[in-house]
Simulated assay, not measured.
Amino acid sequence: MATAEEVRKKIVEHGASIRDRVIENLPHNYALLVEQVKSISRTYKTDFDTFVASLSNVRGLDLLITYTALVALLSKHRPLSDAELKNLAAAYEKHVYDVFSASRIRRALEEVGVEKDVANQVITDVLRASSVINNKYKSLHLWIAKQRKIADFENGIREVVFRGEGGNRVGRGVKLFLRLFIHETNIPLATKIAYGQEHKKYILHGDMYTALVTLRSGAFEDVPTLTAERVKARVAKRLLCEAKEGKCRDVVLRLESIRGLVRHVGKISGDPVLFERGAYDIGSKYCKDLRCEECPLKDICRRHTFIKVK
C-alpha cells in the first residue's frame, strides 16, 4: 500500500505533466508571450537588470497580465470551467487583443454571456488596478518582476486588484492571479519567487476538487493534526462498517472545516502550486465522476469514494 507521501508525490508529478488551466486556455498570441517570458526568465533569472531590460522587448506583455487580472476578477464571482476559459479567450482575441479599451472588453464579455453588472464591475476594477500599478511602477510587468516575498505579493494583489476585499470568493481570484506568476511552469515574471524556495510558501486556495482528491486518495493520512485525526477516525468507522457488511453512511465533510488540512497537505507536498494543479485536474476530470480506473492515481489511491465534500 502506497504511503501518503507517495500519493502526494504522484499528485505533484501529475501537476507537472499538465499546464495550468488559465495558461492552457489563453488567447493564442498571448500563449506565445508566455513562452517568451519563460525563455527570458530561465536565461536571466540571476541577472535582474538584464531580465527587466529583456522583458521590455516583449510586445504586449502588459496586455497579457491585464487579461489574467480580468480572468482572476471574473473567477471571484464564480469558478470558470475550461470551456468558459476557452470561449473567453476566443472572444477576447476577437474584440480586444492589442487594442485595450473598456468598450472592447465589454463586447468580449457580452459575447460570452457575462452579466452586465458583473462585466461593469470587472472592467472598472481592471482599469483601476492598471492605473494604480502603472502610476507607481511604470508597467504591470515591472510590478510583478520586483516581487520578492510571496506574502507581500499576495497582499498587494488583494489590495490593488481586488480593492482590499476579503472572503473565500475573493481568495479564489487572488490565488489564481498569484500562482500564474510565481512558478517556473506558468508565467515566471516574479523570478525571485519562482526560482528560489519562496514559491514553496504558496498556500493553495482549497477548492472542492482539490479537497476531494486530497481526502479520497489518502494524501493526508500522515498529517498529525486534530482535523486529520478526526477525518481518519470517521474513515476508519466507515471501513469497519463495510467489513461488517452493514448499512454504511457516507463521510460528509464541510469544505470550510477541512480547508486548512488541504492547504497543509499542499504545503508538505514540496510544491503546492503543482499539487493544487494536479489535484484539481484529477478531481474535476476523474474523482467527481468516480472514474477511478482512468485516474492517474488508480494504482496508489485509497479510493475512499464514500467521502463527500460540501
Rank of each mutant, 00 (worst) to 15 (best):
F220C: 14
Y97L: 09
L255C: 07
N135I: 09
L74F: 05
R21H: 08
A102H: 03
L178T: 14
K237F: 02
R234V: 03
V99K: 09
I187Q: 07
I258N: 12
A2P: 15
R234D: 12
A243E: 11
R163Q: 07
E293G: 01
D271M: 10
T227A: 06
L255N: 13
S56K: 05
L109I: 12
K247R: 09
V12R: 02
L189K: 11
L33G: 03
R303M: 07
L88G: 05
A145I: 11
G196E: 11
V37T: 02
D82P: 02
V265M: 13
H264N: 06
I193F: 10
K200T: 14
L127M: 11
R234I: 02
I123R: 01
G266T: 01
V170W: 03
I123S: 00
S41N: 02
L70E: 06
P296A: 00
L239E: 08
D82T: 13
D207M: 05
K149C: 11
K149R: 14
L80M: 14
I11F: 08
E154W: 11
K86L: 15
K116I: 06
A190K: 09
H199N: 03
V99D: 10
A2N: 14
I11S: 02
Y195P: 09
K9S: 10
V114L: 12
T210N: 05
V223F: 09
V223S: 12
Q147S: 15
K76M: 15
V122E: 08
W143Q: 04
I268K: 14
M208P: 00
C248D: 03
P224R: 13
E5W: 03
L64G: 08
C301F: 01
R21F: 10
G173Y: 08
K201D: 14
F181W: 08
E84Y: 05
L80E: 03
T43H: 12
A233F: 00
Q147V: 02
T185F: 05
V174Y: 15
R302H: 05
L55H: 03
R263T: 01
D98K: 04
V252G: 01
G60L: 00
S139R: 15
S139D: 04
N120L: 07
K76R: 14
A4T: 08
I65S: 03
L180Q: 15
D281I: 06
A90Q: 06
L142K: 15
T43N: 13
R254G: 10
F48C: 04
V34T: 07
A279N: 04
A211Q: 12
I307H: 07
S130H: 06
A233P: 05
A145K: 02
D281L: 02
I150C: 10
V231N: 11
I282G: 00
R128N: 13
N186F: 12
I40N: 06
G196V: 01
E242R: 13
A91F: 03
L80S: 08
V170P: 04
L297S: 04
A4L: 05
G260M: 07
S41M: 01
R169F: 05
K298L: 00
K175Y: 13
T225N: 04
S257P: 05
T305S: 04
D62S: 05
E154S: 10
K94W: 01
L74M: 13
N135H: 11
R59C: 02
R169L: 09
L63G: 07
